[in-house]
Design a protein around this nucleic acid. Structure first.
Lengths: 157, 157
DNA sequence: TTTTTAGTTTTTTAATTTGAGAACTAAAAA
DNA sequence: TTTTTAGTTCTCAAATTAAAAAACTAAAAA
């Protein structure tokens, strides 16, 4: 008997679009579809087989993708007593941490570009100036984040 | 006779690290190495064969990667009269446009998530609230960009 | 104790990506 | 006109990635 979740065509299309977006940002197709499903599905906690059958994935693809997503902090699961299954769900509530992560990336690039800059000759002035500017802007953005969060929280009230 | 540019070991390592970073953000290895070379190399304008031989790439890999990078707006070239070669260089000066591009992506995701939100049931309150928050924060960040640029430009003077 | 459940791991296959090599082309030079 | 230069394009092989199928495992249920 099928465990698949019933979805409207619109929901299926949204899962594909969101899935493709996640693929573009480095996830495997299966992982991308799973986070997308867990974002779009009206039922927010889905079992292994519900995910597997809704997306027509094999057990291995499902297992590997779920574990990948858990290690990325994109997904976690809860259990219900008297039920051995795990119910997986999106960690959308951790969006602040996810954002922090992506801002951390900016800092890492800035650090790398700083090393490049230190290695560059002094002639190539214009080039060095541009490089200095990107680095400076990246660091500036990063410094402004806390203030931005604060401002956002305030306007949110 | 070899056209390869002489690089120190440090420069070679920086090219690899920067290349890997570009790979992670979706470029092919060859494209990643080429932008990286054009960022690290003390000579900022390099001919096709200088790139090819410095990075030990085939002609096809070099040609395809360069054209990819030009279509992405990451690289362009200049010519010198009496010299048929094209001299390729990093478009690092266009970093503002590149940044704008990546902020545009945030907006696109926000739009997509907005569509998801409109499709969600009204129960799943907490989930919807989180989704609403991410979207709101993304849009907020996007709105703040011009002011951030302005502030950065001012502190830069 | 045996069976079932809920996954995990291993093996194999299919698809995609990447880039080498060689043939090709258009313009310039000889 | 022939040759050379500066790439481009095509064909194919190697490497990588993705996922299916099937064997396996640990815990719970019967």
């Amino acid at each position: 008997m099928s465990e698949a979740i019933k979805l409207t065509d619109d929901q299926k299309r949204l899962i594909e679009r969101l899935g493709v977006y996640h693929e573009k940002s480095g996830m495997s197709p299966a992982s991308g579809r799973i986070v997308a499903l867990l974002t779009v599905s009206p039922v927010v906690e889905l079992s292994f087989d519900q995910i597997r059958e809704t997306l027509n994935l094999s057990k291995s693809a499902t297992s590997n993708a779920i574990n990948m997503l858990m290690s990325m902090g994109k997904v976690d699961y809860i259990t219900h007593s008297g039920d051995r299954k795990r119910y997986f769900r999106s960690k959308i509530g951790s969006w602040r941490e996810a954002m922090k992560q992506s801002f951390q990336n900016i800092t890492n690039v800035a650090d790398l570009l700083e090393e490049v800059l230190e290695n560059r000759p002094n002639d190539t002035e214009k080039f060095n100036k541009n490089l200095t500017e990107v680095i400076s802007f990246m660091r500036f953005i990063n410094n402004e984040i806390p203030a931005l969060y604060k401002k956002w929280e305030e306007q949110e009230e």
